[in-house]
Amino acid sequence: MRHHVLNMGEVQGQGYVGQALGVADMLAVTYVDQLRYRTDDPHWVERDRFLLSTGHYAIALYSAFAEAGIVPVEELKTYGSDDSRLPMSGMASYTPGMEISGGSLGHGLTVAVGMALGLRLQGSDSRVFNFLSDGELNEGSTWEAAMGAKHHGLGNLIAMVDMNALQADGKTEGIMSIEPAHEKWEAAGWFTQRVGGNDVDALLAAFDAVAARAEPTGTPAVILCDTRIGAGVPLLETREKAHFMRIEADEWELCRQQLTEGATK
C-alpha cells in the first residue's frame, strides 16, 4: 500500500503523502481483518460502511482499494488526473467503495451516526466505520455526534482517529490542544482504546476487542491511533512541512528504496 501511495504521489509531485504513509497500517488491518464487503459489488446491501471523513486522505484509501481488489492497481496511475475516478479528495460520485464525499472536516461522524441509526432501524447487522483525523476533534460537530451516538446506543459504530499530531497550520497541540483525548471520549460514553497506529498487532487486538462488543444497540467504540507522518520512509518522517508535501523529482526513487529496505529488515 505504501508503494502505491508513492506511485500516486509522483503523478502529481506533491500531496498528502505523509498522512497516507502514516495510516497505511490502520487501513490494511481494517480492510483485511474487519470490513465485510464485496469487491465486485460496492453497493452490496449487507456490506459494512467505511466513511472517510478526511477526504484529503483519499490517496491512502485508494491504495487500500487497490489491494482489496475494489479498483485495479493500474488505475492508480490516473490519480488526480482529468476524468479520473480517483480525484485528490474523496468523492462518492466518482469512486467505487467511497461511501461519502469527505473534506469539510467535522462532518463525517455526524453522517456516520445517521447511517448507523438508519441501518439499525432497517434491522441490519452491518457496522459503520468512520475514519477521522485528530484535527477534527477541534470541531464542535464531532462532539455533538459523539454524544448523539451514545444517546442512541449505536453499538454498530466504530470511529478510528489518526492521531498524527499535525494539522494544516501546524502541530495539533499548538493549534488547539485535544488532550486528554482518551478521557474525553470515555466521558462521552464511548468504549475507548488508544494504540500505536503503526503497530499491526496492537491494531488487530484493538479491533478484536471492538468486534467482541459490537451489536446494533450498545456502546459506540473509538480507537485512537498514534501514527507517524511518512511512516516507513525516513526521508519523509523528518520533513518539517509535512501536511501537504512537495517531493522533488529526484527524491521519489530514494523514498521507494528506503521503504523497500525498511520492509526487508
Rank of each mutant, 00 (worst) to 15 (best):
N198Y: 03
A149P: 02
E136K: 10
R2N: 02
V128M: 06
G114P: 09
G153I: 12
V222G: 03
G114Q: 12
N130S: 09
L132R: 04
V200M: 05
C225A: 06
V195Q: 02
T264P: 09
L61M: 07
L166G: 00
L259D: 01
T238D: 14
A168E: 06
D199W: 04
A221E: 01
R38T: 04
N198L: 00
A206D: 14
I223L: 06
E75A: 08
A249G: 11
S104L: 06
Q14N: 08
P234Y: 06
Y37Q: 00
Y94N: 13
G148M: 13
E183N: 12
C255T: 06
M147W: 04
D125K: 10
M245A: 10
G15V: 07
V11K: 15
T238I: 14
L121K: 11
A145S: 07
H43K: 13
D199L: 02
E144Q: 12
G102Y: 08
A60R: 08
V233T: 05
G97V: 12
M88A: 10
L21V: 07
R256I: 14
A60I: 03
Y94R: 14
L109H: 04
R47T: 00
I223A: 02
L259A: 01
G262V: 09
T192C: 07
L132W: 02
T227G: 13
V200E: 06
Q122P: 07
V32F: 15
F207L: 12
V23H: 08
Q12D: 13
D250E: 01
D83P: 10
A188N: 01
V32T: 15
M88D: 10
G102K: 08
G123V: 03
D162V: 01
S104D: 03
A20K: 04
G108Q: 09
S81T: 04
H4Y: 08
S101D: 14
V45H: 11
A206L: 15
R85A: 13
Q12G: 11
P72T: 08
Y62C: 00
R38M: 06
Y16K: 03
L61P: 03
A149I: 01
W252L: 06
L86I: 14
L259F: 00
L157S: 04
L166P: 01
R85V: 10
M91W: 13
H56K: 05
D41H: 06
C255M: 06
M26F: 06
L21F: 08
V45C: 13
R194K: 05
Y37L: 01
S101C: 14
A28W: 07
R127Q: 15
P180G: 05
H107S: 07
T172M: 12
A205Q: 10
T30H: 15
V128G: 10
A187N: 09
L117I: 11
L6I: 13
L76Q: 01
A242N: 11
W143D: 00
M26N: 02
Q167S: 09
F244I: 13
S133H: 05
G55T: 00
R2G: 04
A211Y: 08
M8A: 02
Q193Y: 12
D83Q: 13
P42D: 05
D33M: 15
G103Q: 03
K241G: 11
G232R: 02
